[in-house]
Simulated scan of single mutants.
Amino acid sequence: MTKRDEIKLLGTAASPYVNRVQFVLKLKSIEYEFIEENLACKSELLLTSNPVYKKIPVLFHANKPPISESLVIIEYLDEFRPDVHRILPSAPIDRADNRFWANYIDNKYFPLYEDLRQTPGKEGKEAVKKQILEGSVLLEEAFEKFSNGKAYFGGDDIGYLDVVLGCFLGWVQFGNKHNEFNAFDEVKTPKLAKWADRMLSHESLQGIIPGNETLMNFYMMLQIHKPPRAA
């Protein structure tokens, strides 16, 4: 068992990128200390431990150099504790395929939600919603391929893409509610809709996915520090 003071995680409860690291730590039964970061006024700890991107999360493990970027961190944790709930598949081609879709989720799909927040006017927002729904259909197809008829992207149990996409579910629900649409439609993406329900009820995600109040506070902070584009 890793001692709690050996691993520290710098982040904020509303960040899905921090949530995915918390998710893996919980899946692997690794104790850690959580250090809350104020993104409206970034700490010296963040600026010095991640001087390149100046972003959360940052993982500190004993006397090793700080580790930044959520995907890098969860792969590090998977290698650090390979005997407990392996996240990535064992075959190199399967790992490559998983990483491809993780890159799509982080760099193409989820950024559309920030684009939706910043886009002014009903017509512009409807265009972004359409892109999100098109992306959801692609993810439905990916789920069918990876799950092979089973419950998760990882098959019988939670795997890498379940962690990568699952950490966004709180924000997906928040976006659905405040923009009056459903990203995981029960008609167009029925398997993904059932997967989302399954993930949200999974014991390992309890207490990790932030609630509506936490998300709203973070959303309002974004509205102030990164306001929507002018119409």
Rank of each mutant, 00 (worst) to 15 (best):
R81E: 15
P82A: 00
P82W: 09
V84Y: 04
V84N: 09
H85A: 14
L88V: 11
L88W: 00
L88P: 01
P89T: 01
P89R: 12
S90R: 09
S90P: 06
A91V: 07
A91Q: 08
P92K: 08
I93Y: 14
I93Q: 07
D94N: 10
A96D: 05
A96R: 06
D97F: 11
D97C: 10
R99L: 01
F100M: 15
F100I: 14
W101R: 03
Y104C: 07
Y104H: 01
Y104V: 14
I105H: 02
I105R: 04
D106F: 10
D106H: 12
N107F: 03
K108R: 10
F110M: 11
F110E: 02
P111T: 08
L112I: 15
L112G: 00
Y113A: 04
Y113K: 03
E114K: 02
L116C: 02
R117T: 12
G121Q: 05
E123Q: 09
G124L: 04
G124K: 04
A127N: 05
A127R: 10
A127G: 09
K130M: 11
K130C: 10
I132K: 01
I132N: 02
I132T: 03
L133E: 13
E134S: 15
S136I: 03
V137S: 10
L138V: 12
L138I: 12
L139I: 05
E140V: 12
E144M: 05
K145E: 06
K145Q: 08
F146D: 09
S147T: 11
N148M: 09
N148Q: 01
N148I: 15
G149A: 04
K150F: 10
A151D: 08
Y152T: 07
F153R: 02
G154K: 05
G155R: 06
D156S: 14
D157W: 08
D157L: 05
D157N: 10
I158Q: 00
G159F: 01
D162P: 03
V163N: 04
L165P: 00
G166Q: 01
G166R: 10
G166N: 07
G166E: 05
F168C: 11
F168R: 09
L169C: 14
L169Q: 07
L169M: 03
G170S: 15
W171P: 06
V172T: 05
Q173M: 06
Q173L: 13
Q173V: 15
Q173I: 13
F174I: 04
F174L: 02
K177L: 09
K177T: 05
N179M: 07
N179C: 15
N182L: 13
N182A: 10
A183Y: 08
A183F: 09
F184D: 00
D185K: 03
D185R: 04
E186D: 14
V187G: 04
V187C: 02
K188L: 13
P190V: 13
K191D: 11
K191I: 00
K194W: 10
W195A: 08
W195S: 13
W195N: 01
A196H: 13
D197Y: 03
D197C: 00
R198D: 13
M199N: 11
L200A: 09
L200H: 10
L200P: 01
L200D: 04
H202T: 13
